[in-house]
Nucleic acid binder design. Structure first.
Lengths: 255, 255
DNA sequence: CGCGACTTTGACAGATGTCAAGGCTTGTGG
DNA sequence: CCACAAGCCTTGACATCTGTCAAAGTCGCG
């Protein structure tokens, strides 16, 4: 299975197919979504906030964050996208809504024209529904993010974030949830959780001392998932993974 | 214009039509959405979280909140719905996603069967797109909510919340943004902002002392909007109101 | 008129932020 | 391959915001 056999859109298709019924033609339409690849180094802002956006960003490799800012410059990360996620899919129906984006690691992205996504949705109602559902599932993550930032202690917040990422990587088939990519700066973690980098450092250290999690070489290693989940007050049901939908039409589709 | 001339669905239609192009038939389909009215007294939980939901909740009168909870019982309100909002619209494509709801004042709601919304969306692609867009616009509010809870001081949070509600009431044609319904307990405000009731009390008092806002008789009176917006770091663009779309097909539609 | 819920207030506690400095990693260029 | 620089992590002392607990006042509803 060389890269040539797995177009960048493949992971995105798999994700859609995991929650939405798609026929052969619909799968094809998604697989053949056009767009050109871009590489961006770590810790760079892109995807100009506020402006009309004419494309969405499919994460091919690496990790990006969506964020908002207060007028005094404080940054709040609003969510995170792993490979297979299409950041800015919502802009298909609301172009003014294009998010502010930030590379958290070095990433490679595919810029998918809004027009192409829009055309696919218009042509195949099942694709439109899959996109809509994808947006709704993202919103469910946003909701839990609010709970996390609004009502949990620093320790709990960090634990919850790690659990969420572990589950999402595992659902995407990228890594096991006991050890997954975490190429993230403590400053960036602070921005995700509404904390300070200094305090994140202390919290991470407590987690390490307790033999719960080690972060090393851009990977998170979870040594005691159950306890971490308890500390993070983590209930994965909001991620809606593991809903069985039968064999999707796209399994084993070439190219 | 007696109540008989304005079905409960009217406000919802107006909202959709303000951001999505809808023809005569589509408007009709929305206006004639079925559902029965329920009245709920203030401060009651309903819309059982987690379970499969088979209907959405159209707010006809009053104010409701959607919330999440941590396992130690702390509540975090995730967003708020005013008349014309359809809480749980997202459940049309993700039934497992039904939100936990709470009446913030005495409310009257219309329970709209998921099947009816689904049927309308399936029949008219423009309706599906309008629903999708509505969900995306809600998500934009969620994102700002995260920024508010994650990165602003208590004073700023309260100010931002008031500005958001003022703008939303005004956009819905329900009230002027200088004086609008705010039938909300300080405990409930605390749950919205990730604060404590005691601290909300002190903050509200500071706002009153500064002659910025008075809350009285379940109404918020904003005495100095500009200064409030500055304190709340409020930029209304995320609400996407005032986008002109031309004269919608539904103006003056009877029934 | 009285009860219950909500608001207001004060004293105090605790979690998290701020500031500052030093050590470590990592990537880059010679 | 080494040396340097920049950014990142770690740590300590201290400040501050917000939370906690408790009690009294007020309002609205039955």
């Amino acid at each position: 299975m060389s890269p040539a056999d797995r177009p960048p859109t493949r992971r995105f298709l798999d994700k859609l197919a995991s929650h939405s019924p798609l026929g052969w033609d619909e799968c094809r339409a998604i697989l053949e979504l056009p767009g050109h690849l871009v590489q961006i180094r770590a810790n760079l802002d892109f995807g100009n906030e506020g402006q009309e956006t004419d494309h969405a960003w499919l994460v091919v490799d690496g990790l990006i964050g969506r964020f908002g800012q207060t007028n005094d410059g404080a940054r709040q990360t609003i969510g995170v996208n792993i490979p297979g996620d299409m950041a800015g899919l919502n802009a298909v129906v609301a172009p003014e809504t294009g998010p502010a984006l930030q590379s958290l690691s070095a990433v490679t992205l595919m810029q998918v024209p809004r027009a192409a996504l829009s055309a696919a949705a218009r042509r195949y109602p099942a694709v439109a529904e899959a996109f809509w559902r994808e947006c709704v599932l993202d919103a469910a993550i946003l909701e839990q993010w609010i709970v996390n930032v609004g009502r949990r202690s620093a320790l709990s917040r960090v634990a919850h974030l790690l659990c969420e990422l572990g589950c999402r990587y595992s659902a995407a088939g990228i890594a096991h949830h006991a050890e997954f990519p975490f190429p993230t700066t403590q400053i960036q973690i602070a921005d995700m959780l509404g904390l300070t980098a200094v305090h994140v450092n202390r919290t991470l250290m407590a987690l390490r001392t307790d033999k719960l999690v080690t972060i090393q070489a851009r990977q998170a290693q979870v040594h005691d998932w159950d306890r971490l989940a308890r500390i993070g007050d983590f209930d994965p049901s909001y991620l809606q993974i593991g809903e069985t939908l039968g064999e999707p039409a796209c399994v084993g589709m070439a190219s």
